[in-house]
Amino acid sequence: MAINLVQALGAALAGASSREAEGSAPRFKAGDEVVVLNINPSGHTRMPRYIRGKQGVIDRDHGIFVFPDTFASGTGKKPQHVYSVRFTARELWGPQGNPKDALLVDVWDDYMEPR
């Protein structure tokens, strides 16, 4: 059952991408304006609190990945697109944000709605 030395190094070198070949169709494309849902699930999520309810712009589409919210709880991979979403520092932090600056956060399709 245990992997041996050669298998371990092979696995390290190969990695284990959570990219999937197929998944739900992308609902967004680069340049689209989006709003992140305001949700507070008690289980695992990769949606940080600081972007919840905030407006951003899709910077790029990274392709299809496993959805951690369902996968961590053993309820399926629910593969879907992940995007870099650009938020202005002002949108996230108000007057404490520098007007020149931006944050780019990787966000799953299910975490957003069109603006």
Binding site: Q7, A12, G43, H44, F71, A72
Partner: peptide, 20 residues
């Protein structure tokens, strides 16, 4: 980490959630 993941005992999402 890698040997345990290779046994199928858990994946990285479960590991993160356990830490959380």
């Amino acid at each position: 980490f890698l040997p345990l993941a290779a046994t199928g005992a858990f994946g990285v999402d479960e590991l993160r959630h356990a830490i959380e």
